[in-house]
Design a binder for these strands. Sequence first.
DNA 1: AAATTCGCCAACCGCCACGTT
DNA 2: CAACGTGGCGGTTGGCGAATT
Length: 241
Amino acid sequence: MDNIGGLKKGAWSHEEDELLKACINEYGEGKWHLIPQRTGLNRCRKSCRLRWLNYLSPNIKRERFSEDEVDMILRLHNLLGNRWSLIAGRLPGRTANDVKNYWTAHLAKKVVSEKENPKETMKAHEIIKPKPITLSTHQPWLNLKGKHNVSRSDCDDSETKISNQVGTDCASTSQPNLENAPIPSAMWYDTLWNLEEQLNSEDIGSYSSLLPAEDNFMEFPDVDNSFWDSNLCDLDSLWDL
DNA sequence: AAATTCGCCAACCGCCACGTT
DNA sequence: CAACGTGGCGGTTGGCGAATT
């Protein structure tokens, strides 16, 4: 057992996992600095947090990445770069660490080789790049904290409504409202595209300052991967909304 | 069968942003 | 305004099993 400076390091034992799970079941996530004293674990707060978020959380998917998920990672990485937490945020049950590991193990070499020897599919992807739409952090739909319904008409002339089905409650088991999902998907990509434009055009100090607040980001309705993918395949029509 | 290399993934480290005092 | 504490992120490492020589 590695024990440097009084804190244990290295692999977690079953007993430690059980203590951590019991603590979080009782007190909930957060207050990571209190975990060691609440559980008696000889681990630092970061180690406890990481162990829970990357391994013990019941929301984590353990199975292999599906084709849809891999495709989503490739597309999002193309837009966002190594923003693993943002990418993972669009892949239910996947952690930033999972995505990062999968990328380095499976996709990094593939992407480099495809850039050196571009295929037809890559060229096609570049051609259908969506039109940029100017957004600012003052857009109403980016700043409606705690709202459960945001109208597209807050931003433009469309009457289409957005229905939030997820919110920030991770324990929610409600199903996403697929009927109303296309608009937030388009808006979400509007945001990404706008970020990419800004990143390409100027030297900004902080990338995160351009993003909508995290809770607003999470309020976008979640959709299953096949639905999400079908929207991505039809970006041209989405940008014309 | 033994030694070596490779691939994967859990875990650690250092840094940064943000809130509080 | 500065110092400090905390949460979170991305890059990197180390260990282990599988594959290869």
